Simulated scan of single mutants.
Amino acid sequence: MNTDQLSLIYSDSSSHDVNLAAAALHGWNQEYDQVDMGLFQGSLENLAGSGIQVFRERLNISVAQFATTPHEQISILVPLELAHQGSADQARNICADGITLLPYESDIFWVCGQASDYVVVSISIDLLKPLLCDEDLNALMQAQRSYAVNLPAQRLVELRRTLPSLLQGHKDDAQILSPELRNRSLQHYLADVLLDLYTGYDDCGGKRDWRPLGNQHHYIVRKSMAFIDSAEGLEASVLDVCKALNIPRRTLNYSFERVTGMAPSRYLRSVRLNRVRREVLTSSEPIGSIAARYGFFHAGYFGKEYRRLFGESASQTRMAFKVK
């Protein structure tokens, strides 16, 4: 392996659009929907090397995130600040006060609250093979859902302090360490973090208990999203979703409240407005035609709701990105 392959690459970016924020993270196939009202502001710090990646993302308002975890990497999410907003860990699929093991090479969906701040660490399977027995390694690779572990308070505080400092201190290390030493040092530290989380012991001497996340409420929301993304669901109402899933409205309402922190009517409207925004940004088709395709037939109502969610009109969105 040559020195170039062992070098660490640091990048940082900021964005006022969720689509640009989602695209800024290399190696992750993801899509963001802004589901809270106001002007979006997001920032990303990313440090990537041979077999490792650490990134910190900060989002000022609630965003629905759809992502596929990287190929042949084990990933964990460490919350620095995650607001509950009425949702629950089990339904949201992410632990707000502990560590989340993200599913291996699988899709993940969750809705972060306002002022979210978190760090994600990814480590390649090749780095972990010499350190884990086959049983533990296979268990990590077979995880097709999120798992959470609640650490002792002091250990969580330590991780919340140390991981952001890795990003902040990379320039200082570059002045005193070779690229190979920096990369190997970070490899060893991150591998130790994951090994301690997965194979370590709690304060009572027992093996740490990883509990599965995601429940029936999360499943219902995912099925609802799949339906409205289908051809027959583009213009579907909340009642149409209930009929398609064969569930009572109160069940749908409760599921969305637990997973997203908001009512299904508001959430689904926000998702459709995001679909419109993406097409406004990527095509020259008349805005009214795009809006109608997603069920917004009244121009006045569409304009009011679009501005309420994004803090600008659809024509301003298109003009701003044409200028850029």
Rank of each mutant, 00 (worst) to 15 (best):
R272E: 05
P264D: 00
S284E: 15
L127K: 08
N246D: 09
G311H: 06
R318Y: 03
V35P: 04
R58S: 08
M225P: 05
S270I: 08
T317N: 12
H217N: 12
L127V: 07
A299Y: 11
A314P: 06
S7W: 03
L131H: 15
S289T: 14
T251F: 00
P179K: 05
L166V: 02
E81I: 14
D126A: 15
V323N: 12
V280P: 03
L163K: 04
P164R: 01
C133S: 13
D117V: 09
R145L: 11
P130W: 12
R272P: 05
D12S: 14
R145N: 13
G205E: 11
R211C: 07
N150T: 12
R308N: 10
E235G: 11
P130Q: 07
S230F: 03
A96M: 15
H71V: 14
D89I: 03
Q65P: 01
I99R: 01
S270N: 14
Y254M: 02
R307P: 14
K322R: 12
V280E: 10
E257N: 09
L6G: 04
F227H: 02
F40P: 00
N60K: 04
I99G: 00
P248R: 00
I99C: 01
Q114L: 08
F55W: 08
H298V: 08
G98K: 04
S15G: 08
M319T: 14
C242R: 00
D203S: 15
L181C: 03
G295R: 01
N46C: 08
C133T: 07
Q65C: 05
K322W: 11
V276G: 06
P130Y: 09
I125D: 04
I176V: 09
S283R: 13
F66C: 07
S13A: 10
M225R: 13
T282H: 02
S11D: 09
A91K: 07
D192V: 04
A23P: 01
A244R: 00
A91P: 07
L77A: 03
I74C: 02
E81L: 14
R58K: 14
D89G: 08
R92I: 11
R155F: 08
A314F: 13
E57R: 13
I228Y: 04
Y254P: 01
E180P: 07
L44I: 01
E72S: 09
S14P: 05
N138K: 10
